[in-house]
């Protein structure tokens, strides 16, 4: 049991995803964002978190196909990124699950290509498959050109 890790799970569309609890600073219900015109598409806007301005990345835009509609009231997950927090939009935030490190399996070839760069491992729990994201990759999704990876996912 000592070799176990906790994950914060969340839903994006059909996907059950997770991030290590240690990388998640806080979670929030839907908040009003300030849009940033001309910013990359994954930038949902800016958020005032107790006097600190956070960039909010819409992780859903990266994970989902372009055609899928996004829910109007996403939840916000604040992630640590080298001491500079960044916020992520996800559909719903779920439970914290504990998982022995042995239960983490390598990401299978079958997951869509656009998710492969984000996914560090998967957790199989019966029928449930949870994608475990790499916090650093997730926190920088707009650094990688999102449109390209999306194209990759379509083909």
């Amino acid at each position: 049991m000592s070799e176990s890790e906790q994950f914060c799970t969340f839903l994006i569309g059909e996907f059950r995803c997770a991030l290590p609890v240690a990388s998640v600073l806080e979670v929030h219900a839907h908040q009003r964002l300030t849009p940033v015109p001309l910013a990359p598409e994954t930038v949902a806007g800016l958020l005032n978190l107790r006097g600190q301005i956070l960039t909010v990345l819409d992780l859903r835009r990266h994970v989902l196909e372009r055609s899928e509609t996004l829910s109007a009231e996403p939840m916000t997950l604040v992630l640590d990124r080298d001491g500079q927090p960044v916020a992520l939009l996800v559909d719903t935030i779920g439970d914290v699950v504990r998982c022995r490190s042995g239960a983490l399996l390598p990401a299978p070839e079958t997951i869509p290509r656009r998710l492969r760069s984000l996914t560090r491992a998967v957790i199989h729990d019966g029928d449930l498959v949870t994608l475990v994201f790499d916090p650093a990759a997730v926190a920088n999704v707009s650094d990688a050109t999102p449109s390209l990876s999306r194209v990759g996912g379509v083909t």
């Binding site: 300030t34 940033v36 001309l38 910013a39 800016l46 005032n48 006097g51 650094d143």
Partner: peptide
Amino acid sequence: FIGAVGVYAGATILGDGTV
């Protein structure tokens, strides 16, 4: 990557808390 857009000098928090 927002700075890279090039038309913003920064952001500020207004009296009502919005950015």
